[in-house]
Computed example of a mutant assay.
Amino acid sequence: MRITVRPADLHADRDVLIDMMLRFLTPMSDGPRYDWLYHQNPDGQAQLWVLIDSDTGAIVGSGGFVPRRMYVNGRESLCAILVDFWIHPEYRSLGPALQLQRACLAGIEAGPYDLYYDFPQENMVAVYRRLGIETSQWLVRLTKPLSLKRKFGRLSQIPFFGRSLIAATNGILKLRDAGKGNRSRCTISEQRVECGDNFTQLARQVSSKYGVCVARTASYLNWRFQSHFHHRCEMLTAHRDGSLLGYILFVEDAETATILDLFGMEDERMKSDLVFAALEVLRERNVLSVNAPSLRSHPQTAFLRKLGFYPREPHPVVISAPRGKAGLEGANFFLMDGDRDS
């Protein structure tokens, strides 16, 4: 069995890739996701490589990257995020994985990209290690309970006592949070239209304070969140005297919600108001808990912990610069769940 790698033709290979990704990568693989991720990204079209069984000509794996504008060392740079790495189960071994990932990284090396990052699965960590690339950061899942219904388990099924106990306990949780909001004198409101130039201006004004981070321009936010192929992402904004100071993005999935992004001026009261306004919306919908994945090393993680979020399991993150590019030693990185590929 001879395995080769070639660049994907994003149009000619489209139907095969959608089908194979549905079978071996994600249940969300379909035409809208493919077009959204590979073609509609405002920072540029994706580049993809496919693993080929030379005996049959079949595609048995793929991997690639999506261009992403970021602020690096105080300036806006073109960077890349690795996406959609999968291999057919019959071909899953270190050799084909290394062959495919080398092609992806060579594509980045050959382009104008100042850095790349990835949220690899555990089995990909070994591939990166064989390529001499270590996991340099950790994305920790921060979580905050809004209800103790799960905690009480079967006790919640007792008609009067169980429900009364849960209601009383949840009331205490709500009351504890109520005293922490509405301190910034900002107007918190839902963003119901596309993001405008004021979001781009905010990103340019404050991104350097966050360290190395995604350039949260209006075009990026509208594509990544407002026009998402599957999720209904919600945004609350904070304004004072007509000026945009910050925003929070979150998505609800049954009884759990996830904060995708929390960004804005260095004003902890304003950010606290955004967080607790989002929590109040989610409480009214009977959401039981809220997750806020964030890089463990960034100060915003400590800030969220002060608001009652506590850390759970960490996940590895790879952040690296292509050869010949400026080093990233000592840089402060800011990534949240919304900075993933999809």
Rank of each mutant, 00 (worst) to 15 (best):
P67R: 07
Q205F: 09
S147G: 04
P112K: 09
F263Y: 15
I133S: 04
L304Y: 07
Q205H: 12
K149C: 09
P32T: 02
G31F: 09
R192L: 11
V212C: 13
Y117V: 00
R283H: 05
L82M: 13
D13V: 02
L249W: 15
D339I: 02
L244M: 11
C104I: 15
A321H: 02
P299Y: 15
G308C: 05
L202E: 12
E134M: 08
P96N: 11
E76S: 10
N291M: 09
H230R: 14
D337S: 13
M20N: 08
F250N: 05
H228F: 03
S208Q: 14
C79T: 14
S342F: 13
D43R: 06
R216F: 03
A215W: 06
S243N: 12
L274Q: 04
A8E: 03
A106I: 00
L279Q: 11
D253F: 02
F225R: 06
Q226W: 08
P27T: 04
I172W: 05
N286Y: 03
H230C: 13
A167L: 05
R183W: 01
H228I: 03
P311N: 02
K151N: 08
R102M: 05
D35I: 11
S297W: 05
W138S: 14
V281Y: 05
E76D: 09
E284T: 10
R68M: 13
N182S: 14
P322E: 11
F225E: 05
L100F: 06
R23L: 11
L244D: 09
E284G: 15
L146A: 02
A103G: 06
Y38A: 01
R283E: 09
N73Q: 14
G264E: 07
L94F: 00
F65P: 07
I259T: 07
F309Y: 15
G196I: 02
R323E: 12
N286W: 01
L288S: 02
E280V: 00
R183S: 04
R154F: 09
P89A: 11
L165M: 10
R269A: 09
Y310R: 14
F119W: 08
S219T: 10
I172T: 05
G63M: 08
F85L: 13
M21K: 11
E329Y: 06
Q205W: 12
G242H: 06
D30Q: 06
I81A: 05
L142Y: 03
L139N: 03
G179M: 05
T301F: 06
H39K: 09
F161T: 04
G57F: 00
R340E: 12
H39L: 10
V127I: 15
S189T: 14
R185F: 10
